[in-house]
Design a protein around this nucleic acid. Structure first.
Lengths: 142, 142
DNA sequence: ATACGAGCTACAGCAACTGTAGGTTCAAGC
DNA sequence: GCTTGAACCTACAGTTGCTGTAGCTCGTAT
């Protein structure tokens, strides 16, 4: 039986994050000691490890919820699991593509500026004037 | 003189977003009509365009604040502007690198799974077991 | 004169946590 | 058995960068 701190250490998760996962129903309510402290077993350890690993691969909590639900019905087709993973791959690829555009534009902007004074700075000029920018403006690059 | 809606249309910014920028001090408090509606001139239009374009290139609002401050002192060296842009470039590059790792791992995971049943799904297996993953776990891939 | 789109303030909500305050419990050492 | 202090508890505010809602007022076109 693990305390919340021990579980956190084992999975690389902050204590508050574990309580947060419980609050949003991603982790089950665990058993408690007489004094009211949470105690976890192996099932919870595995579940949290799954969640954390999925987060590291960039899955949203919603997607993880879906994956956890799917993995609870082992006899079903795994096509849906595949679909979730594919969706995530597509998202990652889209993010990379958008960031590549930004990278190119930032590099160009920086390399063009050889001014001393702020007044002549190409970087600020490009930022001021949309038209000088080659990037395709697909929204903030998050 | 532009209304807030007209300014928004010209810069591709939602009305609430403009008011938000004003609230956090990124946009100045504009003049008002008798009835209390905001009216904007060219200076504000330019400033908002600068902000939006910088956002599109992924700069944080804090970084933009810094750039705006710098561009207010045109006689200063633009080394600081350069530093802000370099920092942003580094961040973008780091994000790309992290996402590349994720992309590889997701692709591998997906390509390895040819199971029918959830019970045998390689994707879930990899997500369950850290050790099967080649990715380097540098945190969520945002 | 009236209708109605656009504007106003103030506040709640999103993702996914993280941090704080102020109090309680557990386990180890003496 | 008692004390200490790290770890736990709840509840709530804050982060980033907005977005949406409610309930009102304003401006302008007809």
């Amino acid at each position: 039986m693990l305390s919340i701190g021990a579980l956190g250490k084992r999975t690389g998760t902050k204590v508050q994050t574990i309580r947060y996962y419980e609050q949003i129903g991603l982790m089950p309510e665990p058993g408690r000691t007489e004094g009211g402290q949470r105690r976890y077993g192996d099932a919870e350890l595995d579940r949290l490890a799954f969640i954390r690993h999925s987060r590291e691969l960039g899955f949203s909590l919603e997607a993880i919820r879906e994956l956890l639900d799917l993995s609870d019905s082992p006899e079903r087709s795994c096509a849906q699991v595949d679909a979730v993973a594919q969706r995530q791959l597509k998202e990652v690829e889209a993010r990379i593509a958008r960031l590549e555009v930004l990278r190119i534009e930032l590099q160009r902007m920086i390399s063009e500026c050889s001014a001393d004074r702020v007044a002549d700075c190409r970087i600020l000029e490009v930022l001021r004037d949309h038209e000088e920018c080659l990037a395709d403006h697909g929204g903030p690059g998050a």
